[in-house]
């Protein structure tokens, strides 16, 4: 949903004044400010956790942070593209379920993993393409188009199977059980490697290709991008294909992690992914954000969970409340930055 479609009756009043107080032009590029906020929060959490709990800063904990969230990292990368253009994708959680359950059921009926794995990723891409076409050709708001895709993907996964399907395919089992030790306590899994590869590719595409720069240009000012002669239409469709593909990969990783496919997985996962992207410093109105920031966003979400686990007395629901509070802080920070720009 583009920013100018939404009313801003408040204008700049209160925040404008806050922004004025915050004034003073630092040497730092303003684009990095939200990400700096992300890093500060991340560091504070690490330091706080480390000083409070024993073994908090161990290789095992940090490794698990990546291992448990590899799928979310991939989703966040895809969403970063979409959100930088000023769009949104609500369908990623449902696509995770769809590609997981599809993969599990195909494997169960004897398809080889070498066919199934690419196939379930492509399913995500195709859904993304459908969304992109709805948005671009039919001028449907991203919110509604991806909402439809969410219902579609969720419904299709229910059609495939209502119950959880366990995966026994040797390839998946191998992917799921392999641990690659790094030094004494650190370890990696194939899923983490895949996720980090996606991050690297996402980073490369956003920062070192014309396509990536067009993504930023569209988020900055779509009309300007058109007047500059940039391929706006193609790019806008492609970001949804990318997000869909990432959701497909995310679904694959989630299936590997749980060694099963289930049509109810990923309910609300799109919210976690969006929260991670926003906490990672990407501005929801578009034009600014970084893939690496989103990775840190995911890690912060993971850390919240870890800390609550370490705390022991805190109940799990505090996770959601803290995420909400962080989201609020970052949204207000972003708003202040936007007000300052004008």
């Amino acid at each position: 949903m583009s920013a100018d479609q939404l009313v801003r009756p408040g204008k700049t009043g209160v925040l404008g004044r806050v922004a004025g107080l915050a004034g003073g032009r630092g040497g730092l590029d303003r684009r990095f400010l939200p990400v700096v906020g992300t890093l500060v929060v991340f560091t504070l959490m690490l330091v706080g956790g480390g000083s409070r709990y024993e073994n908090f800063l161990s290789g095992r904990v940090v490794s698990n942070l990546f291992i448990n969230n590899s799928h979310l990292i991939v989703l966040a990368v895809g969403l970063t593209f979409v959100i930088i253009t000023g769009g949104i994708d609500l369908s990623v959680g449902a696509v995770v379920a769809l590609s997981g359950i599809l993969g599990a059921s195909l494997l169960q009926s004897g398809w080889p993993a070498t066919v199934v794995i690419p196939l379930i990723i492509v399913v995500g891409s195709v859904l993304g393409l459908v969304v992109g076409v709805m948005i671009h050709v039919f001028d449907v708001q991203p919110f509604i188009a991806t909402l439809a895709a969410m219902f579609l993907a969720r419904g299709l996964s229910y059609v495939i199977s209502l119950s959880s399907i366990t995966i026994t395919d040797p390839t998946i089992v191998w992917l799921s059980s392999t641990r690659i030790p790094l030094g004494e306590t650190w370890s990696l899994t194939p899923s983490v490697i895949i996720a980090l590869l996606v991050v690297a590719v996402g980073f490369y595409v956003l920062h070192h290709t014309r396509f990536g720069r067009t993504v930023y240009a569209i988020g900055g000012a779509e009309q300007s991008a058109t007047l500059m002669g940039l391929p706006v239409a193609r790019t806008k469709v492609l970001v949804y294909v990318i997000s869909g593909t990432c959701a497909g990969i995310g679904g694959f990783l989630f299936a590997v992690g749980s060694r099963s496919g289930y049509s109810l997985t990923g309910v609300g996962m799109e919210l976690d992914a969006i929260a991670a992207v926003v906490i990672g410093g990407t501005i929801l109105t578009g034009g600014s954000g970084f893939v690496l920031g989103s990775v840190f966003g995911v890690l912060i979400l993971g850390l919240i969970q870890t800390i609550i686990t370490f705390e022991g007395t805190l109940s799990s629901w505090w996770t959601r409340i803290v995420i909400g509070a962080l989201l609020l802080a970052f949204v207000i920070l972003q708003r202040v930055l936007v007000v300052r720009r004008h």
């Binding site: 929801l284 995420i323 609020l328």
Partner: peptide, 16 residues
Amino acid sequence: VLGIQPIIATLVLMTA
């Protein structure tokens, strides 16, 4: 009052 986009503003409470 703060002029935050509705979709984001209400996402906060949706999450928390």
